[in-house]
Structure formats: structure tokens, C-alpha cells
């Protein structure tokens, strides 16, 4: 049911954890529905220099969040916001139909983390 890439990112997830002194944190999903994704980012000069994730959820949710962290690391915030669930799906080689929402969660997680960073900046400005 899962591609080799999904299995790989699920069994050997990259960028697990949370960053001390993160510049932005996005937490999306709903524990009741079985998926919660938390993405923390470090930002320097408008660029994501480091990123970590923590996910409560199934293999697809874990793999989606892990690959998403790789996809935005080193990108500018605007570039990161361009990453869509379609990109996450393609990177994973696809997900079963009933798991597509996991890739959407990754997209939302990235957006929430960037928005959190920007609102913190706006507050301190």
C-alpha cells in the first residue's frame, strides 16, 4: 500500500524532534482525527536554516512531515510557502487515496510555521 519512499521516510525519518529557541512553530491537525503535526523552524535572513518535526499519526503522516522538512530546509520563506501537498505527494511517490490528507497536513504545517515566524517578527517590530 505504501511506496518504498514512504516506508523509508517512516522507518528512518529525517529531522525528528523540536528546535530549542525555534523562530517559528506550526502545529496543525487534530488528535481526535489521529493526526497532529508540529513543525519548528530556524530562520536567518528570511531563509529556513533548520527544521524539525514531531508527528502523532500514521506512517503516511510521519513520512509526509519528514519529507516536507527536507523540502523546505535552505529555502526562503516565500519559497517554502510554494510547497504544496502535491509536491509532497510527488516526492513520496504517491499515497493511498485515503491518506492524501496527510500530505495536506504537511503543507498546512509549513504554512503555520512560517506564519508563526512572521507574526512574531511583526510583534517584535
Amino acid at each position: 500500500m505504501y511506496t518504498e519512499t514512504v516506508r523509508d521516510y517512516f522507518l528512518n525519518p529525517r529531522n525528528v524532534g523540536s528546535l530549542d529557541h525555534a523562530d517559528g512553530i506550526g502545529e496543525v491537525g487534530n488528535a481526535k482525527c489521529g493526526d497532529v503535526m508540529k513543525i519548528s523552524i530556524k530562520v536567518e535572513d528570511d531563509r529556513i536554516t533548520d527544521v524539525r518535526f514531531e508527528t502523532f499519526g500514521c506512517a503516511a503522516a510521519i513520512a509526509s512531515s519528514s519529507i516536507a522538512t527536507e523540502m523546505i530546509k535552505g529555502k526562503t520563506l516565500d519559497e517554502a510557502l510554494q510547497v504544496t501537498n502535491r509536491d509532497v505527494l510527488n516526492a513520496l511517490g504517491g499515497l493511498p487515496a485515503e491518506k492524501i490528507h496527510c500530505s495536506l497536513l504537511a503543507e498546512e504545517g509549513i504554512r503555520a510555521a512560517v506564519e508563526d515566524y512572521r507574526s512574531r517578527m511583526a510583534e517584535s517590530a
Binding site: F10, G34, F56, A61
Partner: peptide
């Protein structure tokens, strides 16, 4: 607590254990 059933099943499967779960996934 704190983890999801399907993820558990697949990790158990990876070490040769066949189990099941009543999780939504």
C-alpha cells in the same frame, strides 16, 4: 498512549511481527 496504531503495526511488521489495531488509520 501518545502514538498511533497503524504506525505501530508497520514498525512491528518491519521486525517480523503481525498484529492489528482499531485505529482510524
Amino acid at each position: 498512549e501518545h502514538i498511533e496504531g497503524e504506525a505501530m503495526l508497520l514498525r512491528l511488521d518491519a521486525v517480523g511481527i503481525g498484529a492489528s489495531s482499531g485505529s482510524a488509520c
